[in-house]
Design a protein around this nucleic acid. Structure first.
Lengths: 138, 138
DNA sequence: AGCTTGCACAAGAATCATTATCATCTAAAA
DNA sequence: TTTTAGATGATAATGATTCTTGTGCAAGCT
């Protein structure tokens, strides 16, 4: 809570209860949440909060590098508060998303590829997750 | 044309003029097209073709591994006929998408990460493309 | 070449994520 | 406290994608 307000101030983000509430759903957990999911999580605390507000807040957080939007799923975005470089695995069976902490070696260090200047890189892995694989064996 | 019919037969895809038309917009070019774009391209040849039909056909092609859907842009999907492993660069300025033929080394060869079994991997790069960089310097 | 049959297509409606609008309200600087 | 730029909530709008259904056609079989 204190930490969140600190993060806002550092970035010149006006502190409002709704923004703190949204940030609390993502930080410091390492969950990946949909906008719907975030909305549902803050609803008990702010029964009137609008879905549009959640979208607006997330857009702001994204600009200020407080959260990252990931598009490992084709049908909707997920949000997470981990903003350091890492990648994602998406289970095509259960739909769960996992962090992937692998250094995709030399490429990441490059500033240029084919003359394009790289600002960001994101790797998406698809397959069957460990817990779905276990279930199958039963 | 002949090649496309061959590809269909190999995969037990019933040959229809619309399917051939859609495939011709993507093969053997290396363009990345939106569904709208594909629809616009086949329209002259099939003035009555429905957008829903294009979606259905692309879904089939994807299942049969004739095309790949890429989600380098968050707002809509792109389709391409290159199905061999490669990655994509998206220019955040002009919106253009480029192929990236880089081997993201050891990772790709792995079958497993953190116990998850990997079927597919896709790297997305974001930044300013070479032609946008040139323009800036003028 | 003419049946037959299951699948494909067109048209349009429906759905669902996301964005825009705007009137009201509030955080925080003076 | 007052002021005011900016934030929120309600709701409409947008735009991509999916669903539905009646009609039409590909291709295997006579």
């Amino acid at each position: 809570m204190e930490r969140i307000i600190e993060l806002f101030k550092e970035r010149n983000i006006r502190v409002t209860p709704q923004r703190v509430g949204v940030m609390q759903t993502l930080y410091p957990s390492q969950e990946h949440l949909t906008v719907e999911g975030i909305h549902a999580k803050v609803k008990p605390q702010f029964p009137n909060i609008s879905l549009a507000t959640v979208y607006t807040i997330l857009e702001l957080f994204k600009e200020k590098k407080l959260v990252r939007e990931i598009r490992v799923r084709f049908d909707r975005s997920l949000y997470e508060s981990r903003v350091d470089p890492h990648h994602h695995f998406h289970c095509t069976q259960c739909g769960q998303t996992y962090d992937v902490d692998i250094d995709l070696c030399p490429t990441l260090k490059k500033q240029r590829i084919d003359g394009h200047s790289i600002n960001d890189f994101h790797g998406y892995f698809y397959g069957i997750c460990r817990s779905c694989r276990k279930e199958k064996q039963c």
